[in-house]
């Protein structure tokens, strides 16, 4: 457990004192630093929140943006919703898989990228749309796959 996590837990509980409302804000904050939530992290969070480990694990596993595997430095979400599919998102995904030499759901061996599918990202006017570390990029035509990967983004 990192020392600052205790401070963060306290701050989350001050902002959301009722029920377990501090849990998800704390998980978000730790994941932003760590990149993912390991079993050890989940156990630490459980201790900080005074909750059973199984409870925290059950919450983490429900939400697709809480990652239980190490993530690449750049997490690329490609929207595969209908409006994006109509504009070429499957081809975009395919190009990205080829460029990175991985399949959707995987990370590159050097830890630089993780490639994931996203459901409709509520930006269908920018179809086909992607997010890099949850920052929107779009429209990204399938031919612009390389450019998407070199996109400068904050972590």
């Amino acid at each position: 457990m990192k020392p600052e996590w205790q401070v963060w837990a306290k701050e989350a509980k001050e902002e959301f004192p009722r029920a377990n409302s501090a849990l998800m804000p704390l998980l978000h904050r730790i994941q932003l630093e760590e990149g993912w939530l390991s079993d050890a992290t989940i156990a630490d969070v459980a201790q900080l929140m005074g909750l059973p480990v199984q409870y925290v694990e059950s919450v983490v596993s429900f939400y697709s943006l809480f990652h239980q595997q190490p993530m690449g430095k750049k997490v690329v979400h490609v929207c595969v919703g209908l409006s994006c599919a109509l504009a070429g998102s499957d081809e975009l995904m395919h190009h990205l898989e080829q460029r990175l030499g991985i399949k959707e759901g995987q990370s590159t061996a050097d830890g630089a990228y993780t490639l994931l599918e996203a459901e409709c990202l509520a930006a269908c006017d920018k179809a086909p749309v992607a997010q890099v570390n949850l920052r929107y990029v779009g429209p990204v035509s399938p031919d612009d796959a390389t450019q998407l990967l070199s996109e400068e983004v904050t972590s």
Partner: peptide, 19 residues
């Protein structure tokens, strides 16, 4: 939230908001 369409349904949303 943290990625779950169902949390748009109001009672699921409240559950999520309660952690």
């Amino acid at each position: 939230g943290a990625g779950a369409y169902i949390c748009g349904e109001e009672s699921a949303l409240l559950e999520s908001l309660e952690g």
